[in-house]
Amino acid sequence: MDRIPILKMGRFLLVTIQVDLYDRLATNLEADLVQAVSTTGARGVLIDISALTIVDSFMGRIIGNIGSMAKIMDAETVVVGIQPAVAITLIELGLELKGVHTALNVERGMQLLQEKIGPEDETTDDDSSTE
């Protein structure tokens, strides 16, 4: 059973897709990710698809779905590293990924998430980082 690893990084979840997504893998990812958001209480999800070279309407919809699902669970989604060809394909398919934010690379995506979510709340976790 293939799964795409979901890593927890502080308040965020990090997913890097390194293989070509096939339909089953994508639906699994959707389910796993929503589950992970719920169990970890993550405030942001970062999906890196820079290795993805082929995309179809199903993948586009799954990514959009993940964004919307995370949104109603109070987590922001950032998709990073969309290849030019993939971006053009998505637009031609009429998928603008309305529910998700996009960034050029992982670094920018992290920055964006931090801006969107704002400074850390004291009450959320037993995190020891203090200013």
């Binding site: 998709v79 969309i82 637009i91 603008e96 990924l97 996009t102």
Partner: peptide, 12 residues
């Protein structure tokens, strides 16, 4: 509009 949307997908 298409060009603008594609640029947004790239995160710009």
């Amino acid at each position: 509009i298409k060009t603008v949307s594609a640029t947004r997908l790239m995160g710009a």
